[in-house]
Amino acid sequence: MSAAISLRNVVKTYKRGKEAVPVLHGLSLEIPAGQFVSLMGPSGSGKTTILNLVGGLDHADSGEVIVGNEHLESLSGGQLTKWRGGHVGFIFQFYNLMPMLSAAGNVELPLLLTNLSKAERARRVEIALEIVGLKDRASHKPGEMSGGQQQRVGIARAIVADPPLLLCDEPTGDLDRATADEILSLLQQLNRQHKKTILMVTHDPKAADHASRQLEMDKGQLIERALATA
């Protein structure tokens, strides 16, 4: 299951107190379904903004944001929330896990919003944890895990509802080289085997190399870097 992403002439300006800071001026971008795209760029260049717009966390000032045939710019806040639950999985730099829930409890969170039975929810959580290789850690709390393991839990949570799109904000930013590589391999696996479209924002060129398409943001303009061999 994959989703195609289209951004057409998107404009976004932030207000910081009385100042208006323009971030995106008429940006356009096409990402075909099933692509693993990395997005690099300096701080404030707008890469996180793009992520937020594609994920329905924010509204563009003008332009179209189409994800999987859904025009996000025409959806209200409430509708975006509903849409998000089944269509996008988020993976954060600092994992954003609930410290008082076990790994399984964390992964189950997106499923609580569905009508699935308790047994069905448990089954899908088990599958997700197995995919990320943490089946035997299901009952452990984040405080009992390493950074890499916590990120795996984050990934499991992002895929448990089987969304076609994964959005990653510096997923390896807080991990050492070896662990980062493991996480990136996992993302590749999710892209190649499970056909998920992945948009990853990162600072790290080595992380960007894991993607099949690399983009760079510079003063609001997108530059294609290189197409790695799939």
């Binding site: 409430g78 929330t81 998000r84 639950g85 609930m98 919003l113």
Partner: peptide, 11 residues
Amino acid sequence: FATLKTIGFSD
């Protein structure tokens, strides 16, 4: 709470 919202929990 912000994370819950990203997962899809409504306001």
